[in-house]
Amino acid sequence: MATAEKKKKFRGVVYVAPERCKGCAICVEFCPTGAITMSDRFNSKGYHYPEFTYPDKCTGCGLCGMYCPDFAIYGFREKIGEGA
């Protein structure tokens, strides 16, 4: 881009509760920016759970939390404080 990159005011954050996840991967499939991927690790029930791999891509739309049938993931927007 020719112009300087617009300073971001918000940062998208995603939290995952691995023990609730059943590994359906709907959040990974329907994340609009592809910020989430499936982990190689397992939870105690033997399911792969999602990981917040690319925080830079996340816009904090919260769709992952809307789609999750197991209430195991949710995203939101966080204000970037001064100096951050």
Partner: peptide
């Protein structure tokens, strides 16, 4: 939780929407 619905079941998604 975790609930009895299968992996990928659509019911949990609708409950999410209902709570919101």
């Amino acid at each position: 939780l975790p609930h009895v619905w299968c992996s990928g079941c659509g019911i949990g998604t609708t409950v999410n929407c209902f709570a919101r």
